[in-house]
Nucleic acid binder design. Structure first.
Lengths: 199, 199
DNA sequence: TTTTGTACTTGACATGCTGTAAAGCTGCTT
DNA sequence: AAGCAGCTTTACAGCATGTCAAGTACAAAA
């Protein structure tokens, strides 16, 4: 038993490893070989390359226990705590997610299906940001002079994978440095909480 | 006369128009057809696709008068004014540059030459950020509790094309909204100037 | 035990892209 | 008239995605 999903997982694992190593150079042929499976077997489990990529993102999310982490954010003791949890999530998960996002980026321009799948994911994150800002607002932690919609967009952008890539991958920041400074940046720019509370 | 660079410009113009419309779907064949030129003619003027893309970026820079704008930033009346000029530059030029950057992004993963050309451009911008931060520091406008290196990285990231894409393209901000809020964000997070000075 | 169906393999093919190569045409220069 | 530069046409190799058809291995159902 379990042979049904066995190959699927085998393919996804191989794809993940290969994309992490070779980036966009991970063709279906290579992935198949790495999974010790014929190239055609991939098409028995995934409609096309785009489908495989979206499945790969879900696969990684599942493996890393994303739902639990999102629940942690939702159930944080305060809006500010939720915000910090979100930054922490980026700091820990983005390193793994990043190579896949790169592969995604390379094809989503052409493929409307990939683009939609990508946008869905971005929308999910946007909803999360909205929830955090709403909570900050309810707790009177949101900056008074800031439009909540703008706050959501700023939060969404500053906690994006691209921002992480720029600071960590390009500029060589450590996970801690990233977390500290992004926390500070967010607390200062969209909340009214004093800085001292997180030394 | 003038026939030497004529075709080259014709190709670049066609490539620019096509990339803006079709994004990554702009193959060399299509570009050639749009320029009313044989596909091989492209290879008489550019080594390969990567070379064409890098030339395209320079072409756009030239057309938009980038050197003048950079001079404006350098010769601004103060560090804070330079910072604002930089944000203004992003707000006005990124809309044109963005489609090319997308095409760049799609191939730079594979091609080391494209990657290098891209990094060079990023380094140029980083140098500009360093200059602005140094000036802020000299004028005592830099936040006292902030490491200058961190300030440079933050400035570099927040004024990046990706940040602009997130806020303007994805979240639908207007150029003015972008400019206002990014100015505020930067002034608050890396300088010590009061907010009132830019109402 | 035979049948049947599922999962996978093998091999071939159409299409589209990049990059290279060779040969021919045109018009300007000398 | 000869030479040269710039461009065209045609052809090819290589690699990628995605489709198709036929065959194999194996396990459950008859």
């Amino acid at each position: 038993m379990s042979s049904t999903k066995d190959t699927r997982v085998k393919i996804l694992s191989a794809a993940l490893a290969l994309i992490r190593r070779r980036g966009a150079g991970a063709s279906l042929g290579r992935i198949a070989r790495a999974a010790r499976v014929s190239r055609q077997a991939i098409y028995l489990h995934f409609a096309d390359r785009a489908d495989l990529l979206t499945a790969l993102v879900r696969f990684v999310d599942e493996k890393r226990g994303l739902p639990d982490k999102l629940r942690e954010i939702r159930e944080a003791s305060s809006g500010v705590a939720a915000l910090r949890a979100m930054v922490a999530l980026q700091a820990t998960d983005n390193p793994i997610l990043w190579p896949i996002a790169r592969a995604f980026d390379a094809v989503r321009r052409d493929d409307p299906a990939v683009e939609r799948s990508w946008q869905d994911r971005l929308d999910d994150r946007l909803q999360g940001c909205r929830a955090i800002v709403a909570r900050l607002q309810a707790e009177n932690s949101l900056r008074a002079d800031l439009d909540p919609g703008v706050a959501v967009d700023l939060l969404w952008t500053i906690t994006s994978l691209r921002m992480w890539e720029d600071l960590v991958v390009q500029r060589g920041w450590s996970a801690e440095t990233f977390q500290d400074h992004v926390n500070r940046l967010l607390l200062e720019s969209i909340t009214n909480v004093p800085l001292g509370s997180w030394a």
